[in-house]
Amino acid sequence: MLEQFLEKGDILLGEKCKDWEEAISRGCEPLLARQIIVPSYRDAIMENHRSMPYMVIAPGIMLAHARPECGARGLGITLMTLSPPIPFGSETNDPVSFVITLATPDDKSHVKMLEALTDFLMDDDLREKFLAARTEEEALAALASASDK
């Protein structure tokens, strides 16, 4: 189901980033390019993370997002894997190898997308399959198989 929210280029695989700031910037790029978010949104994500690393929601997984009023104009999501993984300053969940960047224009528009994301993340087999993907096609195939279940 999640694949229906992704445009071409929203899956970034095996990215090399020098630190968490660069990783957040990289994950925002496709959304910036389509003007789903403006630069202030990316900056707000970094600000959020600096104040508390709570967005590292599970071992190795960062859910990068800010509030709509910080500069989100539309609904969007990017999925990025990091190779090698990078420390994000989380006491229990470092290092991060998977950065999910979310944008929603309001408090409600992203409900279906979050449901799809939750289903995907909580399925260990599918998540592993996605993380092992080498091409966008393989990654999309992993996501699409989630909706068959």
Partner: peptide
């Protein structure tokens, strides 16, 4: 609860 009130908190609400 989460920092922004629309990401992780929303996902946890669904799971709970």
């Amino acid at each position: 609860c989460c920092g922004s009130g629309l990401g992780s908190s929303f996902m946890m609400e669904m799971n709970i």
